[in-house]
């Protein structure tokens, strides 16, 4: 599936460029994007080192376990396959909280950390575990209480009420999250291996 989507993006892009006489943009875009990938990754390394360092402190101080115990019962319903004291739960909670607060660059390190912890409990290391699917569904549909970037864009575009979309945004994202949780149940049951 990923292979196919990736190929379609490339092939349709190049064909479209050829058909519209913009073949030069392909070269420029490809090189620019490759460069950008490195920039993004290196920026991420700084932020990630900071958060993973702090995360290690929180772990060794027993705080991550504490958080997992506090919010665990609610989260654990969604992750029945995880051990009750799984270290992944703490990272998952941190990732979701960062997402909800709109701290995008703190969310990624916690998310990647959660994936590493989930991978440790995964019996088939090359196949996504059900817990990973649930986590990513929550992660990509998670509620952001304040969509700061888009509010900034609206403000710049001289909106009379830049923040009026907060309510509708929370509603829409809430629907998406609910759908993700419900659908996850069905998919998981259908795919028992």
């Amino acid at each position: 599936m990923v292979n196919l989507v990736w190929l379609i993006l490339l092939v349709s892009g190049i064909l479209a460029a050829a058909a519209t006489g913009r073949i030069d943009t392909v070269t420029a875009s490809a090189l620019k994007a490759a460069e950008m990938g490195v920039e993004v990754a290196f920026e991420l390394i700084g932020v990630m080192s900071l958060w993973l360092g702090l995360m290690r402190l929180a772990e060794e101080a027993g705080l991550v376990k504490g958080i997992a115990r506090l919010f665990g019962p609610a989260i654990r319903i969604l992750f029945p396959s995880l051990k009750p004291d799984s270290p992944a739960l703490g990272a998952i909670i941190m990732n979701l909280s960062a997402n909800i607060l709109g701290l995008g660059n703190a969310a990624t390190p916690f998310g990647l950390k959660a994936m590493q912890e989930l991978q440790k409990e995964n019996p088939e290391p090359e196949v996504a575990s059900p817990a990973m699917c649930t986590f990513l569904a929550l992660n990509t549909s998670a509620i952001t209480l304040i969509p700061a970037t888009i509010i900034a864009v609206r403000l710049k575009a001289q909106s009379a009420h830049p923040t009026e979309i907060i309510g509708p945004t929370i509603f829409a994202t809430g629907c998406a999250m609910t759908a993700a949780i419900i659908a996850d149940r069905f998919f998981r049951r259908g795919q028992k291996l």
Binding site: I14, A17, S29
Partner: peptide, 8 residues
């Protein structure tokens, strides 16, 4: 980027 910039 190729997909977007090419107009696809």
């Amino acid at each position: 980027r190729i997909f977007i910039d090419s107009g696809a």
